[in-house]
């Protein structure tokens, strides 16, 4: 099937109007941001919303602002804008690096950070990246704005902490401590360029090069981007040389409910998760 089922299209002029439309249509409505995940699944009729609420005409949801110890990114900011942001490159290397690996240029010109995380595709890159950066996700609903920690936002495959009448409006990244480095590595599906497995890593080193904090998230390998607690614990307090990082990441996929499909068996995803984690952590340490 290459044509979506019939639907009504609503172009919201403000976040409040979009929320009112979501309240009105409930489960029959889907939010349209960049549309590069939703429209393909509508064409395959995996999604058949009766109502589409388009956020594209709402002004003021696309921005990157440095303010009071954090960088705030509007939900409708495109991957291309993020890729070329000087302020994001300065503080969070893995974010521009990760979005540059998404799809192709046409997709990156349309796809948005808010859309990607609200969609929570298990093979998407951004859920792992925002978790690794311990971002705050600002969510607006009928009762105002609330903040959800990235670690609490992704509930499962295409499942988030969003209520049906809530919209992601902003993602906030705390400016990292000195000597913090980050990196994102993925093994891409050769067709879609989604992650067969990927690893987002953020490490902070102290004065003598010892790792004082580590944040490591594996994406693509299981039903949602998942923090690798055991890997993090094995890095903190150590010098991040090749042997230490290899030992810490050898079992990076342990505990994950691994996916297996034509793009990678469970066994392959497990091994490649370890490889991506090792490479991402070593690169992050090199940048710290």
């Amino acid at each position: 099937m290459s044509v979506p089922a019939a639907f009504d299209y609503h172009s919201a002029k403000s976040v409040d109007e979009a929320i009112a439309l979501l309240q009105q249509y409930g489960d029959d409505a889907k939010v349209l941001a960049g549309g590069h995940s939703l429209i393909p699944s509508m064409k395959l009729r995996l999604a058949q919303p009766a109502h589409l609420v388009d956020l594209g005409k709402i002004s003021g949801l696309s921005y990157i602002r440095e303010e009071s110890g954090a960088v705030a990114v509007g939900a409708m900011t495109t991957y291309t804008t993020i890729e070329h942001s000087d302020v994001l490159r300065r503080y969070f290397a893995l974010l521009p690096e990760g979005v540059a690996m998404i799809g192709d240029q046409q997709v990156r010109n349309r796809g948005t950070i808010g859309g990607s995380i609200a969609h929570s595709d298990p093979a998407a890159d951004l859920p792992g990246i925002v978790q690794a950066l311990r971002a705050d996700i600002l969510v607006q609903g009928p009762n105002g704005v609330r903040t959800v920690k990235a670690d609490d936002f992704f509930m499962g495959m295409f499942e988030t902490a969003l209520q049906p009448d809530e919209i992601v409006t902003e993602i906030r990244f705390a400016i990292p401590a000195a000597r913090t480095g980050s990196a994102y590595m993925k093994l891409a599906n050769k067709a879609s360029h989604y992650a067969v497995t990927g690893c987002a890593a953020v490490v902070t080193l102290d004065g003598d090069g010892t790792c004082s904090s580590a944040s490591v998230v594996i994406t693509g390998a299981s039903e949602k981007a998942t923090r690798a607690n055991a890997v993090e614990a094995a890095l903190v307090g150590k010098k991040l040389d090749e042997a230490t990082v290899a030992a810490a990441t050898a079992h990076a996929a342990d505990g994950l409910a691994l996916l297996g499909d034509i793009h990678g068996s469970r066994e392959y995803r497990a091994q490649m998760s370890a490889v991506m984690a090792r490479r991402a952590i070593l690169k992050a340490a090199e940048r710290a």
Partner: peptide, 22 residues
């Protein structure tokens, strides 16, 4: 990279360019 793949019950698994690599 190119290959047409079917599931055991005959479902085409590489029906779009999201799954069939070029």
């Amino acid at each position: 990279v190119e290959g047409v793949e079917y599931s055991e019950d005959g479902q085409l698994l590489t029906a779009t360019l999201m799954d069939y690599a070029m």
